[in-house]
């Protein structure tokens, strides 16, 4: 860990100002501190936002929910409103990390956690995300956990969050704040950048832009599932995960919100897949077509080739369960 300055932010604007001047936000620190110990990240200054008043979960006028950026993963997962109306989010949170980590990890921090690509964490290996231009050791290396969608020749990292996958399926938006007090709302799907030729740039956030909250739209019709497929029963990142919200009426699918984890550099959602399903009668053939469409562009890199058939099997299984339950 390199020596760094530390300051506690007095207000959100103060935090944004310090960050605009080069400081890195720290909230739960469950990922950042590891990265700093490894010197994969070496901020010259940290601005601690833990004491800001961003830890409320509030009901919005439109029936939605506004989740403060500092709400811990545990508190969010256990919130009775979330459990009742947005259960896919609760389940996704509880599928992630461990009890200890969830107690410390925050909503904003979860969104901004870095990839778990093994090569990103090992400074003796090439990584365009860590050291732009150095190359990608993962492409021809041990890439079991890495992406098959949305990759580039420069980076095949995945975004590791479970929470963000559920939020993507729910149509969440991120509310940010800048030092001048201005705010903006960013649909979660637009928050993340695909790697392209700059995998070191991961989000559209500007230097100093603070995530203040995540908003969920009002609850929607339909059953909700978060299915996480992983290498062990707990404390493992998703190989493939599916957050699904499906409504069925008179035998036809009237809504299909589907977001995927473990497959891509961001929580993945494909509107064409949802369109294909919507209005159709449930059938394995239909689900297979949806999987074909989802994975049409998928590309494996050897050790992660299996994710393509696994994603297909998982999606079909989730759709079967959602459509059965919903029609029951």
């Amino acid at each position: 860990m390199r020596p760094f300055d530390y300051a506690r932010a007095a207000t959100s604007e103060d935090a944004a100002r310090q960050a605009a001047e080069g400081a890195t936000f720290i909230a739960g620190g469950t990922n950042l501190l590891d990265l700093m110990k490894l010197e994969v990240m070496a901020p010259s200054a940290l601005v601690d936002i833990n004491r800001l008043d961003l830890n409320q979960i509030e009901e919005a006028d439109d029936g939605g929910l506004r989740i403060g950026a500092l709400v811990t993963n545990s508190d969010l997962a256990n919130d009775t409103r979330v459990r009742k109306h947005w259960p896919v989010l609760s389940r996704a949170l509880l599928a992630g990390a461990s009890g200890q980590l969830r107690n410390k990890a925050t909503t904003g921090g979860n969104l901004l956690q870095r990839t778990r690509c093994l090569y990103f964490y090992d400074r003796a290996t090439a990584c365009n995300k860590r050291d732009p231009g150095s190359g990608c050791a993962a492409r021809d290396g041990f890439n079991r956990i890495l992406a098959v969608l949305g990759t580039s020749e420069h980076c095949i990292a995945t975004h590791p969050s479970d929470m963000a996958v559920a939020m993507r399926a729910l149509g969440a938006e991120v509310e940010t704040l800048k030092q001048d007090g201005s705010t903006r709302r960013i649909p979660l799907g637009d928050l993340y950048l695909l790697p392209g030729d700059r995998p070191d740039r991961e989000t559209v956030l500007e230097q100093g832009e603070l995530i203040a909250a995540v908003t969920l739209p009002a609850p929607v019709e339909g059953r909700q599932i978060y299915r996480k497929v992983r290498d062990r029963a707990s404390y493992a990142f998703a190989l493939v995960s599916v957050a699904g919200i499906v409504a069925v009426s008179e035998g036809r699918i009237t809504r299909a919100n589907l977001a995927f984890g473990g497959l891509a550099p961001k929580p993945w959602r494909n509107a064409e897949v949802e369109d294909l399903l919507t209005g159709e009668a449930s059938s394995d053939a239909l689900f297979g077509k949806a999987a074909d469409l989802l994975l049409a562009e998928a590309q494996g890199f050897g050790a992660n080739d299996f994710k393509i058939p696994l994603a297909r099997r998982t999606l079909v299984s989730v759709l079967r369960e959602l459509s059965q339950e919903a029609s029951a």
Partner: peptide
């Protein structure tokens, strides 16, 4: 998990060595 090129232990932590 050994890197196929240089043989280093790619999953050298308790998060990824399961």
């Amino acid at each position: 998990a050994f890197d196929p090129r240089d043989g280093h232990v790619a999953n050298h932590n308790l998060a990824e060595y399961h």
